[in-house]
Amino acid sequence: MDNHGGAHLGMLMEHPGVEDQAERAMTAVGALVLQLRREAGYSIGSLAAAAGLSPGLLSQIERGQGNPSLTTLIKLSQALKVPVGRFFDTKDQGGALVRRNDRRRLEVAEDNLIYELLTPDMSGQLGMLRAQIAAGWDNEDAPFKHAGEECVTIVQGRLHVCVNGVGYDLEEGDSLTYDSSLPHWYRNPTSEDAVLIGAMTPPSF
């Protein structure tokens, strides 16, 4: 079960109209899930079963009415065999430069969980992102698993990272490099947000 199901997903920017943008973001995510489900030949019931979700929740997500958490998106991405990064917003960066306020963003607002893409997109040989991991959050029940190699550096707070069953307690300034094809998950055991910078090659978050 997804224990973060009440969290709101949004790709939100720092200006008026945030609620409208969140609604549009959920609609866009729902449309993408519907498209990917049909391309993969799944019914709602079969995809829900493959992802370990209820058909009702999946139907709500596809209609833009659900509030999927990152855990839910991880489960869907794994069932659909696409990277979680497909759910980033899709605005065109228009070149190599990414301004701070123009980062492609994936946000679970109520859980204060934010992923920002630091590279223009995920179509090159290298991907970099900034992640803000909320106090108490973890994805042990739905670990990441994607081809390639990854390095994370903690720039704020502390974070427990588990790779293929081996746990590492990281503090500010610590880095960890690992084979990202192995199951890996994060836990913030503290009462404050943690922030990391991650690099992936190939980009396959």
Rank of each mutant, 00 (worst) to 15 (best):
L76Q: 06
V166W: 02
R100K: 11
G198N: 01
M128I: 13
S54W: 12
G136I: 06
L129F: 10
W137G: 08
R187S: 07
V98F: 04
S77I: 08
S181L: 15
Y186M: 08
P16D: 05
S77V: 12
N188R: 10
A51V: 10
M122K: 02
A51W: 06
A31H: 08
G94Y: 00
A131Q: 12
G148D: 08
L129T: 05
V155R: 01
G52V: 09
G124R: 12
L53Y: 06
A49Q: 02
E171C: 12
Q65F: 04
F88G: 09
P83V: 11
G30T: 07
A40G: 02
D89P: 11
Q60N: 07
L118T: 00
T201N: 05
A50K: 03
S123A: 10
N112A: 14
G41W: 08
L73N: 01
A25S: 15
N101A: 11
P183L: 02
I133C: 04
A7L: 12
V82A: 06
G52C: 07
A31S: 09
S181F: 15
V161P: 04
V98H: 03
L58F: 12
L159I: 13
D89F: 14
D174S: 02
L76Y: 05
P183A: 00
L113G: 09
F144T: 04
G30S: 07
E110L: 15
E192K: 12
Y115S: 04
R38I: 13
H15I: 00
M13T: 13
S204F: 09
Q65A: 13
L36Q: 11
A48H: 03
S180T: 12
M200D: 01
I197K: 06
A50N: 02
I74Y: 05
T90D: 11
I197S: 04
A49W: 00
N188D: 02
L73D: 02
D111L: 15
I61C: 03
Q60M: 12
S43V: 09
S77M: 10
T72H: 03
A142D: 01
I61Q: 04
D89M: 14
L117M: 05
Q35C: 07
T177S: 13
E172I: 06
L36H: 10
S123L: 11
A147L: 15
E23Q: 14
G173N: 01
S181C: 14
E172T: 15
P202M: 05
L80N: 09
D102R: 14
R100T: 14
